[in-house]
Amino acid sequence: RHGNLSRAAEALHVTHGAVSKQITALEAWLGTPVFERTARGLIPTEAGTVLAPVVAQAFDALADGVRRVRRGAGPSTLTISVLPSFAAHWLIHRLPRFLDRHPGIDVRFFTTRRVVDLTREDVDLAIRYGRGDWPGVHAEKFLEESLTPVYAPAFLDRHPGRAPMDLLRHAIHSHHNDDINWRRWREAAGLPADEIPAASEYDDTAVAMQAVLGGQGIMLGRSALIRDDLAAGRLVRVSEIDIPSTEANYMVCLERSRSRAAVRAFRDWLVEEARDA
């Protein structure tokens, strides 16, 4: 994976010499080299290229079994990686319905914006927002979204006498595609599609939403995350115009985990909740 003895040693928490010795011993036992040593690092030979995926699959299966034994969980525990924004604004208040239906499943959440490595981390499945093109995993779309600008009533209190459409320059950006999506929305609204200068910019949607709820500006809200706040009057739409998001919410797991009863149960529940949302 690393193509470098020093980085491999660091990842394994052993010395450079220990890794080199193990590789030498492996090659002696196989009777053929598995790496070609170059000035830029290690390059797998033909034998190494054949062997690597087989070894990786075996170690992944072993690691999966060890994780289950270590946590004493068996098939009834689910550790789920989820974005903080989706957890706070969509998942958490729906979760009791899943727990009531499946009292034997212990659900543990790992909230992070990082894309976790399901093959190496103690996580059974992930809920991700994107295009579903993550390599090496099974990704199933369960919830599509639309985008529309929203603000909190307190925002207009700071700008008395102004219409929301006149205040779009107070945009809060929270996503790497926000510039593109703002232009798409302005085109749909019949407005000049010039880039809107962001009054504030955040790298976390959950934090950006708190800023908007605090009356600091207008954000391009994701329908799944703003639905409850709109219903409660905590957020208000700028207009009735929305655009489809080019990304969606996916349930992601390893192919070998799809057959686990707890994973299937959570997948089915997610699809049902999304359908009824």
Rank of each mutant, 00 (worst) to 15 (best):
R158H: 13
R158W: 10
R158N: 09
H159G: 09
H159R: 09
H159K: 05
H159Y: 14
H159L: 09
P160N: 13
G161K: 12
G161I: 08
R162M: 04
R162I: 00
R162F: 03
R162G: 04
A163R: 15
A163N: 14
P164L: 09
P164I: 08
M165S: 07
M165Q: 13
D166M: 00
L168N: 03
R169E: 04
H170P: 00
H170F: 15
H170N: 10
H170D: 10
H173Q: 04
S174G: 14
S174K: 15
S174T: 13
H175F: 07
H175E: 10
H176M: 08
H176P: 06
H176C: 00
N177D: 05
D179L: 06
D179N: 14
D179T: 14
D179Y: 12
D179M: 05
I180L: 06
I180P: 01
I180M: 04
I180Q: 11
W182A: 02
W182T: 07
W182P: 08
R183C: 05
R184W: 03
W185H: 08
W185E: 09
R186C: 08
A188Y: 03
A188S: 06
A189E: 13
A189F: 05
A189C: 04
G190M: 07
G190F: 04
G190R: 02
G190C: 06
L191V: 04
L191W: 11
A193R: 09
A193K: 03
D194S: 15
E195C: 08
I196D: 05
I196S: 05
I196W: 11
I196F: 08
I196A: 06
A198D: 06
A198K: 02
A198F: 05
A199Y: 11
A199V: 14
S200R: 06
S200P: 00
S200Y: 01
Y202K: 01
Y202M: 09
Y202T: 06
Y202P: 05
D203Y: 12
D203G: 14
D203T: 14
D204P: 00
D204V: 08
T205H: 12
T205R: 15
T205N: 13
T205I: 12
T205V: 13
T205E: 13
A206L: 13
V207T: 15
A208C: 01
A208G: 04
A208E: 01
A208Y: 02
A208N: 03
M209I: 01
M209W: 03
A211M: 00
A211G: 00
V212M: 05
V212Q: 01
V212F: 06
V212Y: 06
G214L: 03
G214W: 14
G215P: 07
Q216W: 15
I218F: 12
I218V: 15
M219P: 02
L220Q: 08
G221T: 13
R222A: 10
R222F: 00
R222K: 13
S223T: 13
S223G: 07
S223C: 03
S223Y: 07
A224K: 10
L225T: 02
